[in-house]
Structure formats: structure tokens, C-alpha cells
Design a protein around this nucleic acid. Structure first.
Length: 602
DNA sequence: ACACGGTGTCATGCT
DNA sequence: GTAGCATGACACCGT
């Protein structure tokens, strides 16, 4: 699968389609290796079945809807044979179910049911989500890659009987009521348990059979290039793997292949039964099909936004979808400012004067437009002065949502989109909250409404965020009256000022935060200094005590001529500036205190 | 009903 | 003189 992808990507510029690789791959592994071998076994098996059918085994199968499989030799065949059968029966005469010979009928059933067993995970996924897990995991992830033998090789285990719903059972019984089919089925079903569980195409819930009965005429119309190359068995995978990431080309290819499934179902009335349903569901919108499809696809590893509806829509207008994607791809690169409206997500590319904040209001504008249904498309189409058709514009806008190609998620981006204030650097600001969006939308809607009222052919963000030169150039390209000019200037002024105010407040907050930080640091320093002061005081006090004790010790060691100690009350020790210590009488000291306090004792 | 925060807008000064 | 920015002040709105 990876090789296929690689090869396909390498040659995609050359126009090579992916199925080319798949086709080769499939031919190598399937057609040459298994088809004929299994086909022979199939033929033998059918002969045996035919013999038994003639012996009237009808009663066995119709009652329970489950058919006891005939012993081993034939049982494993259907699943393994399936891919081969599809391939070889592309040109099967499906319209002659009533008139076909018995052998043909047998052949048809023998071919059909085993095929559908293999297709069961794909074609009949919609009927029961239970069948989804049985799908080959690689199918949804790389849809076209399913063309490779992988999905076809391992025929999924026969679905459990309980999977068949009552409706399916009844429909099955009705089908069995047909005489020819009864014979054929009875013979065929004896061999396989899978038959009862086969989701019949006449269930209105079945989605993919719609493709199966898609008019054969479309076959050649849709994909003439790939039709001849790709055998019908590839279609088995397409039903399941209608991918979200598949390029439009591939989608069209898939769509084209879908009709080939006709070969798998002999009864033409099936088409009459189900195809209208398909149309109905198509017309009902994507949700209906998405719901059904999603149920079936829920187990698919890869989300497959492209539902059958998408395929139908493609069939209805490939050109549109292509243009739609082209539009989304091109707009972000456009510097006309229009892209800013349509691609608010392109913050990286939309940066200009204000960085991300530029073009940030398109969301609000769009929401504003949403509030005025009816006038939205026309007004904006006028305002943009683009070549877009309103439909294109309307569809292109959501498509440009940040989801990119996940087109199913385009529904409600506005509510959750990043507000311009957040984009322009305010996302970290404490002001950022949800209501900011609301207010912004309201505010912007004012100017938007005014602009629309005056038929100003620019968007608010264009007016606001374009550089002066570009703005003037844009203005020069349109003849605006005084009111329009005044409004445009006001809008630009307000827009600029709004951004300035936001920046100002941001700075203010930053300043506040900075000042608070400084305050904290200053407080810490103050505490540190106070603590140091306290330590110094303590040390000083200790030193004084030590000095005092030293003084007393020295003084006590002094003796007069008679060997008597001096009284501390009468004498004191004093140190001169040169370091000499003198014993000074207290009386004298008091006398000297007035003239030389330096000599006073410590 | 009131307080408060967030935001847009206006007026003004400055570059 | 004009455009743009910064900012105080005010009003509005939502919580």
C-alpha cells in the first residue's frame, strides 16, 4: 500500500491515477493466481449444487433463513472465490434474471453471493454497524489502496446470522419467493452459511447498493480512462472506502466505478427500488447520509468525511468541487485581502502589519452575515467583487476553515474560532474570554452593517488592516461617494484605534504585572536588608559586651605603687589616638570630659 | 439593582 | 497637513 501511494504520488503530476498501480498489483496477485483455480472449483461446486437443487431442497433454507452449509469442500469456496467472481462477471446479464436459463441463474447466484460475502463488509456496511469491524482496516485509511489485493484476499468471516435485521429477512424471503430464485438460492445456500446473513440490497437502509445500481450508462461517462483498466472487483472496496482525503479525481474515479457493481446484482428491479432512495437521501442533504454512513463507518479507522453524498455531489458537479478546492487552496495565498475573509485560519499567511491580528475579523463578519440570511451571499459577493458565484463563495468560506480538508467538520467553526484579539497577541492577555468574541462580533457587525448598507465593496478587516498604500490603491479602484469614503475612513480609524486600545491595555497590564513583580522583588530586598540589620545589631551588641568584659579584665589587673588595685569608680582607662592606653582619674575625667571626650573610657 | 471587568469608541496629544 | 499610535475617559454589555 505504501508503495502504491509512493508511486502514485510520484506520478500524480503526470496524471497517473492510483488505480493503475492497484490494478497491476491486483492482476498479479489475484487474477493470475486465484481466479481460474477457484473458478474451476466453483464450477464443480455448482454442478453439485445443481443436482441437489433439482431434488427440491427449498424447504430447508427458507424457514430459518440460515442454511446449513454443505461439507467443507464447497464452504470455504465462496469467500475465496469472491474476488474472482466479480471480476469475471462484470458483463453479467443482470437484466435477464427472469429469463435466464437455469444454469445462468445458478451461475448468477453462485457468483453473486460469494461476491457479496466479500463485499459484505463494504457494500453492506450501512445496514449494520456490526459489519464494519469486519472491514479490512486498510480500506478506510487509504481508500484507493483497497484496490490492492489486501482487502480482497481475506474474505471476512461469514457474518453472524443475527446481523440480518427483520427487514432484511423479510426482503430476503420475498426474494426467495421468486420461483427461479428459489431454486437457485436453495441450491446455492446449501453450501454457505453466509447467504442468510447477506444484507440484501433491497433494504432501504442499504447505502452502497445504490451505487451498485447506479445506471450503467454513467459507467463510461464518468471514468472512461479507468474503466477499462480496473475490473469490477475493485468496486468492492470503493463502497467502503469512500474517503475523505481522496482527491477529487479519485472520487470521480470511484464514482465511475460504482456503477460497475451492477454486475453483481442480477435483478434490475433492485435498482428501481433503491436508486430513488439514493436520490432522496442525496437531496436530503449530507446529514442524512452521514448519519447512516457514519454508523456504518464508525468502526473505520479513518474518518471518512466523504459520504456517498459527496460522491453524488461530485457526480452532479465535479467542476464545482474542483473549483471549490482550488478556491480554498488559492485564497490563502491571495494578497487581495479577500483571502483574509475566507481563510481566517491562515494566520500564518495572513500576518502583515499586525501579525496574526490581521484579517482576524473575518469570522465575525461571516457570522454577521449569517445573521442576515438571504442578503449574505449577494451582499458579500457584491462586496468582494469577485467572480465567485454566491454558491461558490458560500461553500468556499466554510471550506477554508482550519480543518482543511475535513469538510465534514466545517459546519460550526465560527463559534470556536479564535477571536482576532486572541490571534493578534491577546490570547495571553487577561482580557481574553469568550465574551470577547461576542462583543467583537457585535461591534464588528456594526461597521459591517454600515458598510453593507452603503454598499461598500470592502470588508471591515480589509479596510482596517491593509497598509496605507494598499488601502489607497484599493480605494482608488472604486468610485465611492462621500458617505462611503467617510464611513471607510471611520471604519479604518476605529479599527486602528481598537487595535491600539487593545495593545495599550495589553501594555498596561504588562506594566502592572511588571510593577507587581518589581514590588515583590523590592519587598524581598527589604526583608533581606532588615534581616541583615538585625544581624548587625546583634553582632554589635555582642562586641560591646566583649569589649566591656575586656576592659574590666584589664582594669582589674592594674596596680598602684602600693600594690593596691584601682577603683573603677575613681579611675578609668582611656586610649589615645596613637594607641596608647592611659589610666585617668575619674575626677580628672569629669574635668576632661568637657574638653576632650575622646579620652573618655570606652 | 449594583459592582465589576472587558471592550469599543472618542478625544487628545504626540511622532 | 495627514496618518498612525498611545492613552485617558466614557459608554455599553455581560457576568
Amino acid at each position: 500500500m505504501e508503495l502504491i501511494d509512493i508511486l502514485w504520488k510520484q506520478d500524480i503530476d503526470l496524471g497517473a491515477r492510483r488505480e493503475v498501480y492497484d490494478y497491476n498489483h491486483r492482476q498479479k496477485e489475484h487474477e493470475l493466481r486465484r481466479q481460474r483455480e477457484l473458478e474451476e472449483e466453483k464450477q464443480q461446486h455448482l454442478v453439485l449444487e445443481q443436482e441437489k437443487a433439482l431434488l427440491a431442497q427449498l424447504q430447508l433454507d427458507e424457514e430459518t433463513g440460515e442454511y446449513i452449509p454443505r461439507p467443507p469442500p464447497s464452504a470455504p469456496l465462496p469467500s475465496a472465490v469472491a474476488p474472482l467472481e466479480v471480476t469475471q462477471n462484470v458483463s453479467f446479464p443482470e437484466e435477464n434474471a427472469d429469463t435466464m436459463s437455469f444454469d445462468e441463474c445458478l451461475q448468477l447466484l453462485a457468483d453473486t453471493f460469494p461476491v457479496e460475502e466479500t463485499e459484505n463488509p463494504s457494500v453492506c456496511v450501512d445496514t449494520t454497524a456490526v459489519s464494519a469491524p469486519m472491514m479490512p482496516p486498510e480500506q478506510p485509511a487509504v481508500p484507493l489502496a483497497t484496490l490492492s489485493p489486501g482487502p480482497l484476499l481475506p474474505p471476512p468471516p461469514s457474518p453472524p446470522p443475527h446481523r440480518m435485521s427483520l427487514d432484511l429477512e423479510q426482503a430476503w424471503m420475498e426474494l426467495l419467493s421468486l420461483p427461479e430464485l428459489q431454486q437457485c438460492l436453495s441450491m446455492q445456500m446449501e453450501d454457505t452459511l453466509e447467504i442468510p446473513t447477506y444484507p440484501l440490497p433491497n433494504s432501504p437502509e442499504v447505502q452502497h447498493p445504490n451505487y451498485t445500481f447506479y445506471p450503467m450508462t454513467n459507467l463510461t461517462d464518468r471514468a472512461p480512462n479507468s474503466l477499462n483498466v480496473c475490473p469490477a472487483e475493485f468496486m468492492n472496496t470503493f463502497d467502503v472506502s469512500v474517503p475523505s482525503m481522496v482527491p477529487p479525481d479519485n472520487l470521480s474515479l470511484m464514482k465511475a466505478k460504482a456503477p460497475q457493481l451492477n454486475a453483481k446484482f442480477p435483478a434490475e428491479n433492485f435498482c428501481d427500488i433503491f436508486y430513488p432512495n439514493a436520490i432522496l437521501e442525496k437531496s436530503s442533504g449530507q446529514h442524512g447520509l452521514e448519519g447512516n454512513e457514519s454508523n456504518a463507518m464508525s468502526d473505520i479507522p479513518n474518518k471518512s468525511p466523504f459520504t456517498p453524498v459527496d460522491i453524488y455531489s461530485l457526480s452532479a458537479g465535479d467542476a464545482f468541487d474542483r473549483s471549490k478546492e482550488n478556491l480554498t487552496a488559492e485564497l490563502p495565498d491571495s494578497d487581495s485581502g479577500i483571502s483574509s475573509n475566507i481563510s481566517p485560519n491562515a494566520s500564518s499567511s495572513g500576518k502583515s502589519v499586525y501579525g496574526d491580528e490581521s484579517f482576524g475579523y473575518s469570522d465575525s463578519d461571516m457570522e454577521e452575515m449569517d445573521h442576515n440570511p438571504g442578503s449574505v451571499e449577494s451582499d458579500y459577493s457584491e462586496m468582494f467583487l469577485l467572480n465567485f458565484q454566491p454558491d461558490d463563495l458560500q461553500r468556499a468560506i466554510p471550506l477554508s476553515a482550519p480543518m482543511g480538508q475535513s469538510q465534514q467538520q466545517e459546519k460550526k467553526p465560527k463559534q470556536h474560532k479564535t477571536y482576532p484579539a486572541e490571534e493578534n497577541g491577546h490570547n495571553n492577555a487577561p482580557f481574553t474570554k469568550d465574551k470577547q468574541k461576542k462583543r467583537s462580533e457585535v461591534r464588528l457587525s456594526r461597521d459591517g452593517q454600515r458598510a453593507k448598507a452603503l454598499k461598500i465593496p470592502f470588508t471591515v478587516d480589509m479596510i482596517t488592516n491593509l497598509p496605507v498604500d494598499d488601502f489607497n490603491e484599493m480605494m482608488s479602484k472604486h468610485q465611492l461617494n462621500e458617505a462611503q469614503l467617510a464611513l471607510v475612513r471611520d471604519i479604518r480609524r476605529r479599527g486602528k484605534n481598537k487595535v491600539a486600545a487593545q495593545n495599550c491595555r495589553k501594555r498596561k497590564m504588562e506594566n502592572i504585572v511588571g510593577l507587581e513583580s518589581n514590588l515583590d522583588s523590592l519587598k524581598e530586598e527589604k526583608e533581606r536588608l532588615l534581616e541583615e540589620k538585625s544581624k548587625n545589631i546583634t553582632n554589635l551588641k555582642e562586641m560591646k559586651q566583649q569589649l566591656n568584659s575586656l576592659y574590666l579584665e584589664v582594669f582589674s589587673m592594674l596596680r598602684d605603687e602600693k600594690g593596691n588595685s584601682y577603683s573603677p569608680s575613681d579611675y578609668s582607662l582611656q586610649q589615645s589616638t596613637d594607641g596608647n592606653v592611659f589610666l585617668v582619674p575619674r575626677i580628672k575625667k569629669t574635668f576632661m570630659k568637657s574638653e576632650d571626650s575622646v579620652l573618655s573610657p570606652l
